[in-house]
């Protein structure tokens, strides 16, 4: 399984802060995103935002990065702290 977490505006749009996905057919961040998009219109429109960032195990990554079972994948909007 892969744990997927969402933050800030994206978390609110999806009305979901975390979920688990089976690793079947998932090799990269892009595959994770595509599986989520299949969950419905709300997911499709929220994840269509091209400015979204992704992280694997607390490191920022790009969409071609490999993921494996046990990883924690995160999607979130550009950061606004400080």
């Amino acid at each position: 399984m892969i744990k997927v977490v969402f933050f800030a505006a994206l978390r609110e749009q999806l009305q979901c802060s975390e979920l688990s996905l089976p690793t079947d057919n998932i090799k990269t961040i892009n595959d994770v995103k595509n599986q989520l998009i299949n969950k419905g219109e709300q997911w499709q429109s929220a994840l269509a935002n091209t400015s979204l960032l992704a992280a694997v195990n607390h490191d920022m990554v790009d969409s071609n990065t490999a993921v494996k079972s046990g990883d924690e994948v995160a999607f979130f909007p550009p950061v606004t702290g400080g």
């Binding site: 933050f7 606004t80 702290g81 400080g82």
Partner: peptide, 14 residues
Amino acid sequence: IMDFLKVKAPFWKK
């Protein structure tokens, strides 16, 4: 440190 905290550290303001 402050400049990079602002663009890299995962915080979000509402």
